[in-house]
Amino acid sequence: MVEAVNIVLLGLLVITAVAAIRLHDLFAVVMMFGIYSLLAATVFVVLDAVDVAFTEAAVGVGISTILMLTTLGLVGRWERRPVHRPFLPLLVVVVTGAALIYGTLDMPHFGDPDAPVHQHVAPRYLEQSPDEIGIPNVVTGVLASYRGYDTLGELTVIFTAGVGVLALLGIRRRRQDEATRER
């Protein structure tokens, strides 16, 4: 049952992604991206990743889409039709895709409990975290405690990106305002 739902949702993802390629109205492209993220969040629920699902639904669907729409409001809604032919990009994409599919052929199958990824630290987290950290949600325990430095690094990235956005847009705007006022 879970597998059937999974297969249908992934099919819908393919349809939205192809639609995003074919559209030239950027507003519609951004909406397709929003639908894509929401479908991805639904896939995460089906695959037992509830924490990831609500982060994706809030941050991926909400904030990303709003940022993209704000940008469209500033740069204009329509994409110019491409002048060159799509053969070369298509060739590059097909070759890359074929190489990646070749790489999956000896991967452990989907849902396989004996896959190497499930043998290393994950069982330890599941067994020890109730005693060591004492909260039932293992994902939160790993995120905030075992891999706390990852989260600290993440905050550094967010801070840097925030400083970057302010440097690109915020400070310069204020100077322009002052310049117009002086005039």
Binding site: E56, I63, L67, A122, V139, L143, V157, A161
Partner: peptide, 30 residues
């Protein structure tokens, strides 16, 4: 239980992804 470790990695990646998208869009506006 399903493996919690990929969930943790992707939680971090989603937030980092949005901040890089924001920076990219700021560059586009500029």
């Amino acid at each position: 239980y399903s493996n919690p470790l990929p969930h943790v990695l992707i939680l971090t990646a989603i937030v980092v992804g949005v901040s890089t998208t924001a920076l990219g869009l700021a560059l586009v506006v500029r």
